[in-house]
Design a protein around this nucleic acid. Structure first.
Lengths: 148, 148
DNA sequence: CACTAATAATTAGCGCGCGAACCAAACTGA
DNA sequence: TCAGTTTGGTTCGCGCGCTAATTATTAGTG
């Protein structure tokens, strides 16, 4: 077996990054049937939820809030516009800025999507304490890596 | 603001799933420069590390170990074969099974990749205790969701 | 006022990640 | 033996997620 001597053995299941990676894959899989009735992907859901909280913002701001890049978001918001859930308009004072506004239809969807977080949390089955701990750890990782 | 009365307000940053989602995006971003010298993507790295631990397995087994689907893995292992890192052969006793074996070149890469986990862990900056806790929580989520 | 630099978004190209449909090899049983 | 089923992989189609390059608009400079 280990004929290579001094080299450290790394096993995938022991890597915390792999644990996160697998958990996220499982989560997006689990969200699919929950979001299918709303005709949303998980990323589209993230964008809509962000805009439900505050809309009338430009793409750059949306990118900062979702922690995604503009090239990722451009096709996403185009699809959401095609579904009639939001408006994409250039700002009056600055033609470069793209202002995103939730439509009436988008607000209707917000009410439909109201129970999604509870359903999801229920499937995940974490205690409130574990949930808080998990958020804290993930936030720590995200912040540490964002600071290059 | 909240004129809609009884509806619960959900904020994206408070969703544990979003915290995981963002952390994983940050992680794959952080892995990119680390894996670029090895000419590997994160998923390719996951596959190689899994096969470094034990090769000579079929695609189905690899799928179970990586928690990824066969349709995801087929193009990945083809690219790894094209790079000369592994062999794809049909099993002698069962033509359906695709047996994956790490090549000499693939073993050489293993030695090169030896320090990647340490470098990554260092950037993430978790204490060993937090790291264990995070693995446990993610494992719990993955298991709960895998059980439908 | 021209000319450059900075900024906001988009496009191009690549590699996942997955559900659905498909195909061929292997097993099953009357 | 030979339909019928199961099994292991592949193919197809779609939607991210990102880097690099491009376009268009605005701001800044002499």
């Amino acid at each position: 077996m280990g004929e290579t001597g001094g080299m450290k053995v790394h096993r995938m299941p022991e890597q915390p990054c792999f644990a996160l990676y697998s958990a996220v894959n499982a989560i997006t899989r689990a969200y699919r049937p929950l979001l299918q009735p709303l005709d949303l992907t998980y990323t589209q859901y993230v964008v809509m939820m962000t805009l439900w909280e505050q809309d009338g913002v430009d793409l750059r701001t949306l990118a900062e809030r979702t922690l995604l890049d503009p090239p990722t978001l451009t096709p996403v918001v185009k699809r959401l516009e095609a579904k009639g859930l939001l408006d994409r308009r250039r700002a009056d004072d600055d033609e470069r800025r793209l202002v995103l506004t939730v439509t009436e239809e988008g607000r209707r969807l917000q009410r439909e999507a109201d129970e999604v977080p509870e359903k999801m949390l229920c499937q995940v089955g974490l205690t409130p304490a574990d949930e808080r701990k998990l958020r804290a750890l993930c936030g720590q990782i995200t912040d540490a890596l964002a600071a290059h």
